[in-house]
Every structure is written in structure tokens, then in C-alpha cells.
Nucleic acid binder design. Structure first.
Length: 192
DNA sequence: CCCTGATTCGC
DNA sequence: GCGAATCAGG
């Protein structure tokens, strides 16, 4: 018996680490990963709150987190009504609003990790992946789209050489992996 | 979609 | 006290 499995249990040491990292601005998930596999980011956040550590970088403005006025009491477990009726399988008519720009300075690779001292020297600019090139024989016209084809539009919709990506789309969306990521991660990004 | 923290509440 | 589930925002 030499198994030392202490999945939970906030020892003073761990609490210290937690506090330190939290103060340094690391995200809950990062701290969780640092503490060990048995720790989830929820655990970290929960502990942080219990320690009343939240609000780490408060300049001089004591703006108490806008607390939601009322909680509908999301009782866990016990879900009597399972009325999950979704007869509409929204076929291919789900074009969102992917900008039809072919090139754009994107920055993928790093999901904005908090400033981590160890990460500073790992900074490097991603080689800006070029837009996907779809071979002609893979390109699809509007009428050729199916539930399983990526519906990312390419080119000018009014032009003759307008076509759709046509790659196999994800279960979770109307686009292929490449374009679904592009669709979300690109748009938005700082409201101002 | 990914992520973030905030909150609630059964355990 | 703990943390999963959930919520809300970016």
C-alpha cells in the first residue's frame, strides 16, 4: 500500500499555492491544472470564494460584482419534465454570418491565457494559417449542400464562382472544423 | 465553439 | 467545507 491519493482536501500548502497563483492572475483552470489532476477549475473557484479571495485586481474602484437579482433556483438532479421536443432539425438553412473575407490576420494557438510568468518567453506569433483551399471538385453550390456539408460560403455570392466549402461538417454545427472555429473565434473579440 | 469567473445547493 | 452543475459574460 503505497498509494498516496489525496484527490481533495485543501491542505495549507495547497491553499497557499492556490492563493498565490490566484493573486498572480492565473485563471482558475490553470491553477487547477497546476494543483493536480484531482482538482477542477470549479473546485478552485469554489475554494477561492470560500476564502473570500475573489476580486484580485481591484484598482481603487470598489464595484461590487453586479449580482444577479434573482436565481430561479436551478435545482439539480430530478428533472421531471423531459419535454425535449425538437422536431425541427434545422437543415441547411442555418447560415450565420461568416465574413466572406478570404484573408485576415488571425491569431490562433493561444486562448488568451492570463499573464503567466512562465509563459512570457513562450510567446510566439502563429504563422497565420492561410485560408483553406478547396479543390474545385470539392466545391459545392447552394443546392448541393446537405446536412453533412460545411456551409461556409466562399467568394462573392453574386459571382459565378461562388461556392461552399463542402467539407464534412461537424455534428455541432453547419461548418467543418476549420470554419466553425473561424466563425466563432474570429468574430467578436473586444467590444468597442 | 472556446473560454472565463460567479453562484447555488446537494452532499 | 466541498465542488458539480449551472449561469452569465467575452
Amino acid at each position: 500500500m503505497v498509494s498516496g491519493a489525496q484527490p481533495a482536501g485543501w491542505t495549507d500548502e495547497r491553499v497557499e499555492t492556490l492563493t498565490k497563483l490566484w493573486m498572480e492572475g492565473l485563471s482558475a483552470s490553470q491553477i487547477a491544472g497546476e494543483l493536480g489532476e484531482g482538482v477542477t477549475r470549479n473546485a478552485v473557484i469554489g475554494k477561492v470564494h470560500r476564502l473570500k479571495l475573489s476580486a484580485r485586481a481591484k484598482p481603487t474602484n470598489s464595484a461590487p460584482r453586479a449580482r444577479p437579482p434573482a436565481r430561479p433556483a436551478p435545482r439539480r438532479v430530478a428533472s421531471p419534465s423531459a419535454g425535449m421536443s425538437s422536431p425541427m432539425s434545422s437543415g441547411a438553412a442555418k447560415m450565420a454570418r461568416p465574413a466572406m473575407q478570404a484573408s485576415r490576420p488571425q491569431s490562433i494557438g493561444a486562448t488568451a491565457l492570463a499573464m503567466d510568468p512562465q509563459m512570457e518567453q513562450q510567446l510566439y506569433v502563429a504563422p497565420a494559417a492561410a485560408e483553406l483551399f478547396i479543390p474545385e471538385d470539392k466545391r459545392l453550390s447552394l443546392l448541393q449542400l446537405t446536412e453533412a456539408t460545411c456551409k461556409w460560403p466562399i467568394g462573392d455570392p453574386l459571382s459565378k464562382d461562388f461556392y461552399f466549402c463542402g467539407q464534412h461538417s461537424l455534428e455541432s454545427g453547419p461548418y467543418c472544423d476549420f470554419h466553425s472555429r473561424r466563425a466563432y473565434h474570429q468574430v467578436d473579440k473586444k467590444r468597442r
